[in-house]
Amino acid sequence: MKKDELDMLVICKKCHTLHQKIEIHKDTKALCSYCNTVIYRYTSHLSRNTLALSFTTLILLIVTFLFDIMTININGVYKSLNLESLFIVVFGQGYYLVGIMLLFLIVIFPVAILISLILLLTLMHHKKSGYTVKRLLILIAKFHHWSMVDIFFISILVSMVKLFAYAQIELGVSFFSFILLLILDIIVIKKISFNELWILYESIYLKDNKK
């Protein structure tokens, strides 16, 4: 089988059914015939849209990490939850392993993924350093499972329910930016379309190799 023939095929990520690719209109998606999962999309202005969205997500991430997520009030004593207090308490109590895992899962991986996305899309836009772009794409593919910002948000909600009985809860700025962050995280990181990014990469950097 030739390379071009393989390029015309696509395998569903969920049920591994083999499909022949067909041309689809702009901003539509192709679904698997067996399990109805999206197998590929055709997004117009993919790089520009993703670049803008990942910038927004990064800014929201920084805002979320800088301010208080919530403050509780127990008989006039206040305690607030933010990233700083989180790590001070966890590391202060000697839970280094949990602390390091938290640091990676909710800070380092999401930030690294977003910065890599911004960097690679900017490089793609200027058609420079193909090798770096490739490495960044591989890096994102390997680590995007490990970004757990969404799960952290659910955990915040669960702990709020647990605290309702004992304390008054005041929501902070970060809580609201977290909601926005969650939506963008799903659009940018969770639904990232690697296939399209790789096709874009090939069309920019591998033109000479193709007929």
Binding site: I72, I154, S159, L163
Partner: peptide, 25 residues
């Protein structure tokens, strides 16, 4: 696919415990 997708959800409990330990301190 499901096995891979549900994996990270178990972290909820660890996160909740750390959040509670920060607030109730």
């Amino acid at each position: 696919y499901i096995t891979e997708a549900i994996g990270s959800w178990s972290m909820i409990d660890v996160f909740v415990v750390t959040i509670l330990s920060v607030l109730i301190h």
